[in-house]
Design a protein around this nucleic acid. Structure first.
Lengths: 198, 198, 198, 198
DNA sequence: CATGAATGAGCGTTCATTCAT
DNA sequence: GATGAATGAACGCTCATTCAT
């Protein structure tokens, strides 16, 4: 019998090395040689566990998006169904969870987002995630706004989340979560106040 | 005797080919062979006019950002200095100029943005542009809001602009400028209304 | 306590899997991974039983050639020593035994033949077999022809046998044994008829 | 303007190097590194001129088969249409042209033949050639034999040609063209003699 | 006896760049 | 001004083999 339990060690190890290498040199510079060296294993092992570089990248993106989704879901579960504002804040805060705001995660997320324009597998993953975020937001917003208005505001919140991540990825200081949360809360509070504009 | 005025023909020709290739296969797939074939010239010519592939990419990003800045500046010049809301809308509309929303431009912009994380030359270009956008917005907002509030709202608008571009780049329908303008106008109008929240 | 008699199970199992894989993807595509998967065992087992890939290939070629030789020897044993034509036909028929004409066997044979040009172990096996065929033929022919003529005709028969196998390996219909036997019988009958030509 | 006329130099140069390397180490050992080193050029040049290793191999096989066909056609053109035996001998001699019997050509031919079992491009080339040989033979044979008998004898001659090449490829002495021609002439003369057997 | 984790060399290919023409 | 022949390094990947379990 071979060494057992290695997959459970190697897969996260390689995924983490991938994010660190993307942080260092970008997705375009992230070769299997660099990644495997960072992980302290041979290059061939990537094919062994992920069937190739693409499989590793897909697993890495999946990991980033999964953690994001987990952060949101955990917070939602802890928030009563009738507290709309709190639930929206839970969704937003899930997207600005400190563990998600490490530079390497933010850079990896943006690199994959850009790359998914020309990679149908990554594109699919990204679309699923995007739709889930909008769906979560709409469900809450529809409790207090018209369907149309809910869709409108959900897009605003989603754009703010992504925009702040995007700008954070390219700013020396990284994502400033306090500021980001304040900006989005301000937007949401105004939208949920009685007098709807337009 | 060399043909005169060739640089003025070749440079835009190659920059445009670069954007089309990025649109087709992404930045990572954009080889000099592909770009030069799309432009209908030989591969060596890129070194002749841009000193190498990197020079061409930098010139291409510069071209995208320049057009963006031009759109904003032109609109600002046509709007009276005292019409704050109109001037902010001019800035926003400059960022959603139809000529800027061609798929190839949006994709190129996002690709460069992601790439600039690990390319200091592109990074510098991107930072200049970002700061100019924030500066334009703050100048107008400070006319009616406190300095701090102006900074805050400027960040909100900038995040919305980038977020909507980002999401547009990854959506089959592309950037929906009507919707984008409405979302941002809604945000700005609320922020500029007398009773500032929080 | 080790399982007893495993070699007798594993070795033919792997040799057969090797022929099937060569039939599927050719000798150049026949990796140990493919062969072991086809046999339903792990890749390491090949080294265990054959000392490496080369040992397995050699054993496989030996198996093909052995079956060929067995077919000839069995038929010869059943044919009276004085019936020259019948004994020659026995040799020929042994080379066109239906069990030998399965596509996978014919392809494996040709693949090894070609490969043996640059593999001294396989080359030796192939030479032994070739000489045995010629020897068998000459022994019979010398009973009715001069030594020189016997050598000459033996080469003709051997060339026809190999040529028909070779062509059968590359023809969609495979080796047409009826036709092959008829062609060779025709040749032999003419050569054995009294009035030798030339 | 780049150096002109290089394709006419490089292509035969690389095809010849390919045959020499196949002669040295076999088709399975013929790497682009070995071939390009033998030709005295860099490895990348193979892609430049042949679009990849496969293109080079196909061109090499085409070259071998073409020379074979040329040898036959040249001889046929020099032989009167009514001299059936002479024309058949022309076809056979074309297949045993001294230039075709260099070891490297014979080995290359057999290696490709074996390989074509699993490469559809090479398979097509080989089939075309095989059919042309049969066709040439049948045309002559039908002048003096029944259609059925002509087909039968054509297969015999073709099998003898291929069988003698095949055996020559695996014999230290190579193809013995004198012997081969004598064997086939003997066969043909008997078949064309009045009293058809069987 | 058997597994599959792990290695490292070698593979074909791509690529930006150089340069003789 | 422009070409495309030519290079050589780097890439992702395959592979036979080793070995701890």
């Amino acid at each position: 019998m071979p060494k057992v339990g290695m997959p459970e060690i190697r897969r996260p190890q390689l995924i983490n090395a991938t994010m660190e290498v993307i942080d260092d040199v970008g997705l375009s510079g992230a070769s299997v040689a660099l990644i495997s060296r960072k992980a302290g294993v041979s290059a061939g092992i990537i094919n062994h566990y992920f069937g190739g570089k693409h499989g590793l990248l897909e697993a890495t993106m999946r990991s980033v998006l999964q953690q994001l989704g987990d952060g949101v879901r955990t917070r939602l579960r802890q928030t009563p169904k009738d507290q709309v504002l709190a639930r929206i804040q839970a969704i937003v805060e899930g997207n600005f969870d400190p563990r998600q705001l490490e530079n390497k995660v933010v850079k990896t997320w943006l690199a994959f987002w850009a790359h998914s324009m020309h990679d149908s597998d990554l594109y699919r993953l990204q679309r699923v995630n995007e739709k889930r975020l909008l769906s979560h937001l709409r469900i809450e917003l529809k409790k207090v706004l018209s369907k149309e208005r809910a869709h409108f505001v959900a897009q605003g919140i989603a754009a703010l989340i992504d925009g702040l991540w995007l700008r954070g990825a390219l700013t020396p200081e990284g994502v400033q979560s306090q500021r980001a949360l304040a900006l989005i809360e301000d937007y949401v509070v105004r939208e949920l106040s009685q007098r709807s504009a337009i």
